[in-house]
Amino acid sequence: MLGDIETVLESSVRLGHIFLFAALGEYVAERAGTINISLEGMLLAGAYGGALGASETGSPVFGIFAGIIAGFLVAYLQALLSHRLNIDQFVVGIALTVLVIGLTTFLFLEIKMIPGRIHEFEIPLLVEIPLIGKALFAQRWLGYVAFFLPVLIWRMVNHTRWGLEVRSVGEDPAAANVNGIPVLKRRRQSIYVAGLCAGLAGAYLSLAVTGAFSQNMSAGKGVVAIAAVLFGGWTLVGTIFGSFLFGFADALGLSLQIIGLDIIPGPILDSMPYLLALIGLLTIANLSRKPAALASKFDPSGDSS
């Protein structure tokens, strides 16, 4: 039984990381007032890019970079279309996600890949801690980024001028503009951050979790990551908590089926993260704390009179 719990925790952390990386990026983007449905596309692009990069160079490190770049490319298109060319950001998000799904599916069949998997790295002593030791300190090495990335994002958003400007843009773009903050530029930059993070999440998915790419392997993980940000009430701690909660739900579903406990039917377990995200949004999430200008448009050429 204890071993089972350990297994569940281990895979919770592993799967939670995917949500976490993507959600951290989306957190920054939403603080700037943007919502990116294309996060799903960025994640999938990251997964494909990661697998392709690792397979072509034979080095997972290059794979990770390739994944991050792939995520960034999608983010760049999203930012360009929605926050330079004024196309509705949701529609752009849908379109890009679909394009990425199509493109990766197509290329996956055209180009053969053997990416290999990122190595496991145990931190001595700490790994001996009962219950959580293995989950936290016997990860594939990319997983340890999860210890640093939240701190980095936190520093960026709350302790830099850039972060201050991003927050101001998300709260009151008109006032920010009056203060000389380039509103759309900050929004685009925040989307780039989302792309880099989601690309990392994707690379982690294909290189550390599964070790291979498969068609549409993100399967809504990007959407759950967005839900994690909403669920966390646009706070960093809430976002992290949400990510691991959904990761836990995902892991529980998988583990219970492996263990063979069929009190709860499999299909319901498979729905767990999505169901939990929905229930979370309905109950705990504090939707009133959202950035005041979330999902609003800003037209700098608008005449204020």
């Binding site: 319901i268 729905s271 999505y274 949004l281 999430a285």
Partner: peptide
């Protein structure tokens, strides 16, 4: 609860096939 329709319908999309599978 003013849950965004876009997010909720998307989440429901990933649940639906499991309901059918069940």
């Amino acid at each position: 609860r003013r849950v965004d329709v876009m997010i909720s319908t998307l989440l429901l999309t990933f649940i639906a096939p499991n309901v059918v599978l069940f």
